[in-house]
Amino acid sequence: MSDNMYLDQQPMAAVTFAENPEPRCPCLLLLDTSGSMAGEAIAELNAGIKSFYTELQSDSLAIKRVEVALMTFGPVRVISEFNTAECIFDPELVAEGDTPIGEAIRKGIELIRARKEQYRANGISFYRPWIFLITDGAPTDEWQSAAALVREGEASKSFAFFTIGVNKADMKVLKQISVREPVKLQGLKFREFFQWLSNSMKSASRSNPGDRIQLAPPLGWSEI
């Protein structure tokens, strides 16, 4: 009798759940740290990145799912490999050098490819990676082959590639690099941009099979 009572009330209490790794939502930032970014621009960019990490950390799901990698140019450097926002990160980027956008894109795409391989090897599912290129200038190196890689990657849905122009960025070249329409940053509103990006990543990292991931319109930070 008591057994039956127990079963009536709590028949499914003993169910345990499989432990699975969280699906990952990778985002690569390709950041221009050429000489022309010196001063207020680089300071605002640093502040924006810092707030980006803080925002992701405040979201219980995003902190486990969103992985950010940082690359700067030039010279091209990996500042941070793909990592969740669990560790506080203060990049303190310094403006120096030229603008090797072509090399940065090629190395960035390679970083994404390698990360996907690691996910697959470990049975971790993932969302389509996002790449954001942010620059205030024009390429100082060969960029046509990089643009071809971007077109290929977009066509095969290997990643989504976005470009943001700052100040006197060469929007015409950016348009030739990215399949998607480049967006011009309003003044130095890096913080607003990163706020928008963290919101977009939070919602993308929540999507389920069959959901379409859509970016919110770039309001509050772009010249649109």
Binding site: P11, F17, N20, P21
Partner: peptide
């Protein structure tokens, strides 16, 4: 994600056993 283990690529018995036991005893 609760009923299957993706790393082992198999069903998680701890999920199904109690549910079927409950159905059986109902």
């Amino acid at each position: 994600n609760l009923a299957l283990s993706f790393a082992q690529k198999k069903a998680h018995a701890g999920f199904f056993q109690p549910l079927f036991l409950a159905l059986r005893n109902d």
